[in-house]
Structure formats: structure tokens, C-alpha cells
């Protein structure tokens, strides 16, 4: 929610708009990005503890300085093929509702600065997943980078019922 609102404000108040920094990374060969302020840390992948009966896009849980955090396979989440996780991959730790969550990505690319007005609406495509999880796209170095809507990716049901 919050990130959406921020982008909207940026759209409307160009005068105040400042460049935001985004971290871009690849998931199943495609470029995605998250606002740098949404990211708590980036860690190298290490094997996680499997959660029994978990859906395919939930890899398991890992120990982040004493906290148990769930790790999602972004690729599987986006409806792409499952990632065969290895040491070359990274876990991007973000906070959703103040709770840390790990997102498995192939690799981190770079930090890019974006003017809010450069953000384009997601064009209509068939995939429902895409529409839900992507809140906008930008063009960077001739490639299309998708801005992830974090709240949609980590939606309420995964936050546990309690």
C-alpha cells in the first residue's frame, strides 16, 4: 500500500519529485526492481529449512539473527519456472508489515535512480499475476525493468492468520 501511494504522490507533485533509488535484480532472466528503502539487506543464498506442506513458491524458512523468516521463490511466485537455488543466488530481505521476509532472486544487478515521472503504467497483458505483482515499468539502459508491488507479492494470507 505504502509504496503505491508514494508513487502516486510522485506522479502528481512533480515539483517535489526527487529521484528515487531502486535496486534492480533478475528473476528467471527478467529484470525487476524494488525501491531501495524497501530492502533491509541482501544475503547470499544458503539452504533453508523446508516447511512441510508448503506451496511451491515458499522455499522454507531461514534464521536471520534469531528471527525465523519465510523465504519466497519470486520466480515461482510470478508464475515462472521454479528456481533451482544455488550459492550464486541471493535472498533479498524486505519488510512487509514490519515483518522480515526473504525473496529469492537470481542475482542483483545494480542500483538505478529513477524520476517518478519515468514510471509507466503496466501495459495490459494476459497474465493476471503480472498485473497484480507489477505496479509499473521503467526503461533503463534499453531494458524494461518491472517495479514489484511488494504488498501484492506478499499478501495477507501468507502473513499467518493470527
Amino acid at each position: 500500500m505504502q509504496s503505491q501511494a508514494e508513487v502516486k504522490i510522485g506522479d502528481q507533485e512533480v515539483k517535489h519529485a526527487q529521484q528515487s533509488e531502486f535496486v534492480s535484480f533478475t528473476v528467471a532472466g527478467q529484470a525487476f526492481c524494488l525501491k531501495i528503502t524497501q530492502i533491509r539487506e541482501i544475503r547470499r543464498w544458503s539452504p533453508v529449512t523446508i516447511l512441510p506442506h508448503a506451496p511451491v513458491d515458499v522455499l522454507g524458512v531461514m534464521n536471520l539473527r534469531g528471527a525465523v523468516i519465510p523465504i519466497y521463490d519470486l520466480s515461482a511466485r510470478f508464475g515462472l519456472e521454479q528456481t533451482e537455488a544455488s550459492e550464486r543466488n541471493v535472498v533479498i530481505v524486505v519488510a512487509v508489515n514490519n515483518k522480515p521476509v526473504g525473496l529469492l532472486a537470481e542475482s542483483v544487478s545494480e542500483i538505478i535512480s529513477i524520476n517518478p515521472e519515468e514510471i509507466q503504467d503496466t501495459p495490459q497483458v494476459d497474465s493476471r499475476h503480472t498485473m497484480e505483482y507489477i505496479q509499473g515499468i521503467i526503461s533503463h539502459d534499453e531494458t524494461m525493468v518491472r517495479i514489484i508491488n511488494l504488498d501484492a507479492v506478499i499478501s495477507v494470507p501468507e502473513q499467518g492468520l493470527s
Partner: peptide
């Protein structure tokens, strides 16, 4: 005992998690 509340939904057969000596999480 580390609660799994808010980490994942209720998992049949699993009560909670813990962190073992090697830093790994165990159900």
C-alpha cells in the same frame, strides 16, 4: 521455541520452530 505465527499459516504436524546449534532452523 520460535513461533511461526506471522511467518506462515498453520502447518499440520508442526507446532513451532527452533534454532539449532548450527544456526539452522528446525521444525
Amino acid at each position: 521455541i520460535k513461533s511461526l505465527d506471522g511467518v506462515c499459516g498453520n502447518i499440520p504436524g508442526v507446532a513451532a520452530a527452533t534454532i539449532l546449534g548450527d544456526g539452522k532452523i528446525a521444525m
